[in-house]
Design a protein around this nucleic acid. Structure first.
Lengths: 209, 209
DNA sequence: TTATTATTGTGAAAAAAATTACAACTTACA
DNA sequence: TGTAAGTTGTAATTTTTTTCACAATAATAA
């Protein structure tokens, strides 16, 4: 039994692990093999202690002389945040944002794949967009289970949000990443992550003021 | 001197104020005039106490019988998070994401306006896209000061991020909202907000796992 | 009038996250 | 050999954020 530890990793640490991995991957490709906590911290805009603490929490040990072995660290992070079997994702709403996410994401992660898109515009449905088959939204309940999709990225218009979310839940979705400006509520056992661009802009504007 | 208070509002509270306002605005349009903390909490997926505490922090008082007066609250939040003069924003990188943000945002906020876009693709420059004039990126240093742009939304390709950020800083930008996957460092006095879609997806995937 | 219920406001406690401080180790080199 | 410099690992502290607990108040109904 490796670690029950994973489930009680601080949420912030999980976020950072994902970012560490991307940066470490870049470093690998630049030919680096080892990295010190202060180097990684600099890339991430963090303090070295925070890096060390995060790595401590996942049980990774470096050496005083060489720091951390990038390859090992990348693998370990993968063991922690990736699922063994891989997870399948649907983009719901193929507007600008849906397409942006799809094309940005495509092929970037081995264990996460966008396998379907949905839209209500007949112009967009029943063809392949940005490399992903786009279905009419009324096929949601059929395709989500058939394709073993566990995660949905919601990028529909605000007024459609509620109804589409309802269908996703009925289709047995396990996680929703909600980019609409309409806050959702989901039942126990379903995970929800919300992000609103205007909120971020207003927060930034407040601090700039 | 109204309140130095504003500057030391907790960051999380500022984020929530922006969201409160949007939801309150919806309620107003539905004809509601008053709202209780538990109602607002429900809309936001928060506890009533947290709502009350946030409002306490901005110095707004409700009544035990009627709760909060929506109109007054909307105005007060505006006084706190909006700048008096308004703030001008540029979208840098007019790909799918840049266009998504632009069209999503257009006209939504009185005190925040997207006044320019930049791209390096001649197909896109020197014309109006999603209602905003799109310039070639090499005019950045000229147009940012000329248009009094204080905030930039970065949606360029990863490999261009560093160079474009440098130019923005040289042009005197005050805040950057970075949607590329490349973490930036900015000098003292410039505000930076970073968001990465893949990180969010991976975090969600981790919890769904 | 007097309970009863529902609400706000807020001090105090708890929980989560970040930072400080420092012991322990490794290497380089005088 | 011994010491100086640079590193990791982690306990302890501090800071930030959330939650708990409850007093105060208003409206309602018995």
């Amino acid at each position: 039994m490796p670690n029950k530890k994973n489930e009680d990793l601080p949420g912030k640490t999980v976020e950072r692990l994902s970012q560490y991995r991307r940066l470490l991957f870049n470093s690998l490709q630049e030919g680096k093999t080892n990295i010190y906590s202060h180097e990684l911290a600099r890339l991430m805009n963090l303090t070295p202690v925070q890096v060390r603490r995060d790595l401590m929490l996942i049980g990774y040990s470096g050496s005083q002389s060489k720091g951390y072995i990038i390859k090992d660290l990348v693998n370990l992070i993968g063991k922690i945040i990736d699922s063994d079997t891989g997870q399948r994702i649907a983009i719901v709403g193929m507007g600008n944002l849906g397409r942006a996410i799809t094309s940005y994401f495509l092929g970037k992660r081995e264990k996460l794949s966008i396998v379907a898109a949905f839209d209500n515009d007949p112009q967009k449905t029943d063809r392949i967009i940005a490399g992903v088959p786009c279905h009419h939204i009324n096929k949601l309940k059929e395709i989500v289970p058939a394709e073993s999709i566990s995660i949905a990225v919601l990028t529909v218009a605000p007024e459609a949000t509620y109804e589409v979310a309802k269908q996703l839940l009925e289709a047995g979705i396990k996680g929703i990443l909600n980019y609409t400006s309409v806050p959702l509520t989901v039942p126990e056992g379903v995970h929800l992550e919300e992000y609103d661009i205007i909120t971020s802009l207003e927060k930034l504007a407040f601090h700039v003021k």
